[in-house]
Computed example of a mutant assay.
Amino acid sequence: MDEDENSERVTEFLYLQAKQAVKEAVMPVLRDSEYRPAKLKQQKRFMNQSIEEIKEEEF
């Protein structure tokens, strides 16, 4: 194995490690950002319902 091939493998390994680290770091943020609009929409729907409708729902 020559030095260029070795450096390419090291570069690829480091790239894949960095890519995985970024993915792991960003997933909670993405999950949270998807959760918030859904939760807000649910809260708005709940606030616009009458007491009778709320009592009829199963939780």
Rank of each mutant, 00 (worst) to 15 (best):
E34Q: 14
A38R: 15
S33I: 06
K39N: 11
R36E: 15
V22T: 05
Q42M: 14
L40G: 08
R31C: 03
Q49C: 07
P37M: 03
A25N: 10
S33M: 05
S50H: 02
M27C: 03
S50C: 01
S33Y: 06
Q42R: 15
Y35I: 08
Y35M: 13
Y35R: 14
V26N: 05
V26G: 00
E24L: 12
D32Q: 12
A25D: 09
L30P: 00
S33K: 08
K41E: 14
Q42H: 12
K39F: 15
F46I: 09
Q49R: 15
Q49V: 01
K44A: 14
K41P: 01
R45H: 08
M27N: 06
K41W: 09
P37C: 03
S50V: 00
R31Y: 05
Q42P: 01
P37W: 04
V26D: 03
Q43A: 10
A25Q: 11
V26Y: 01
V22F: 10
K23C: 02
M47H: 12
K41F: 09
N48W: 04
F46S: 11
N48E: 13
K44Y: 10
D32P: 00
P37D: 02
V26M: 11
V29L: 07
N48S: 10
K44T: 13
K41I: 06
M47W: 08
S33C: 05
L40Y: 12
R45I: 13
D32R: 12
M27G: 01
N48L: 07
K23S: 07
Q42E: 15
D32K: 14
V22N: 01
K44Q: 13
L30W: 04
N48V: 03
I51G: 00
V26F: 05
P28I: 00
L30V: 06
F46C: 08
M47Q: 14
S33H: 06
F46E: 15
Y35A: 13
D32W: 11
F46Q: 13
Q42W: 11
V26T: 08
V29E: 03
Q49A: 12
S33T: 06
M27H: 03
K39Q: 14
R36G: 03
Y35D: 11
Q43G: 02
Q49I: 04
V29F: 07
L30I: 04
R45T: 12
K23P: 00
K41T: 09
P37A: 01
E34F: 11
M47D: 15
R31L: 07
M27S: 07
E24N: 09
Y35W: 13
K41R: 13
I51K: 01
E24W: 06
P28L: 02
E24T: 07
A38F: 07
K44S: 07
K23R: 07
Q43N: 08
N48C: 06
N48H: 09
P37S: 04
F46P: 02
P37L: 06
K39T: 10
Q43R: 12
M47G: 06
R31Q: 12
Q49G: 02
A38P: 01
P28S: 01
A38H: 10
P28K: 03
D32L: 14
E34S: 07
M27F: 04
R45A: 13
I51R: 02
Q49H: 06
A38C: 09
L40D: 15
M47S: 14
Q42C: 10
R31W: 01
S50P: 00
I51A: 04
Y35H: 13
